[in-house]
Amino acid sequence: MPTLTYRDALNQALREEMQRDGNVFLMGEEVGVYQGAYKVSRGLLEEFGPMRVVDTPIAELGFAGIGVGAAMAGLRPVIEFMTWNFAVLALDQIVNSAAKILYESGGQLPIPIVFRGPNGAALQLGAQHSQAWESWLSHIPGLKVVAPATPADAKGLLKAAIRDDNPVIVLEGEMLYNTKGEVPEGEYVVPIGQADVKRTGQDVTLICHSKTVSVALKAAEQLAEEGVSAEVVDLRSLRPLDEATITGSVAKTNRAVVVEEGWPHCGIGAQVVDVIQREAFDHLDAPVLRVTQADVPMPYNKQLERLAKPSPEKVVAAARRVLYLD
């Protein structure tokens, strides 16, 4: 199986879907001539031309709305945000148009659209450029939300998102674009709504998604050195949430730590904890703990930024607590 970067896996998914379906087009800032701010769209303008790889002005609300309008008239737009931080300007179109038109039209107008781009903190970009938006977006009925952690999942989930008849949010990781992994060639679709056990274990479940999967896997390695067997559940899809996989794992390990890049208040982890207390209450041997970004705007200073982010050490510490090792 070929090894690809996360970036090239996304590129492959886009190219294959655009080859497969003439209604699929890519629109966003710098996607064409510049070849993508993060080079996800490299080569697509040359292959598909400017009608299908459309450079836009810096006008997130406007081009998100164009995408929704195009979907209303039968196309399958992929809207790229240079980062999800900028997509906040487009929330009216995502929340009030894309997510609601099917319902408020009584089922007449499906909106098959993908909104994608990097999410979460990178390195020292400061408060406005270092935010994780998944709990905002996952709150909205009418949307699906996925957050792939590996190149294979990036390809498979983006293909699933493009083929879905609903608005799908694809949260990519800015720090993941250069990561490498094996990616199946050609037809490879990861169904939306299925978590993936990235490491099996018996003693504690580490629940994570996107960039925090690598954090949890590192934590699991450290825990293994201490003789603790941790299971790593990659949610992959945040809406719908794969409740069965979460509860199945907790039923086995009886303990859980939820890791995310977002802030703690009303975060994804809070939703996961709700699932666990509701569906796996009798299996729990300890309160579920969460590891999140510190409840502050992201600082610029490197040391402070490191302190603000989830880390393997923080996850190990939380795991030790739920195991009553500390």
Binding site: F25, M51, L61, G62, F63, A64, G65, I66, G67, V68, G69, A70, A71, M72, A73, G74, L75, P77, D92, Q93, N96, S97, I101, E104, S105, L109
Partner: peptide
């Protein structure tokens, strides 16, 4: 559709126009 957020549907119209051209 009728749309309820003032001005919010104006980009949708541009998008429909885009689809027509496409």
């Amino acid at each position: 559709g009728g749309h309820g957020i003032v001005g919010g549907h104006v980009p949708l119209a541009t998008g429909i126009g885009f689809a027509i051209k496409y």
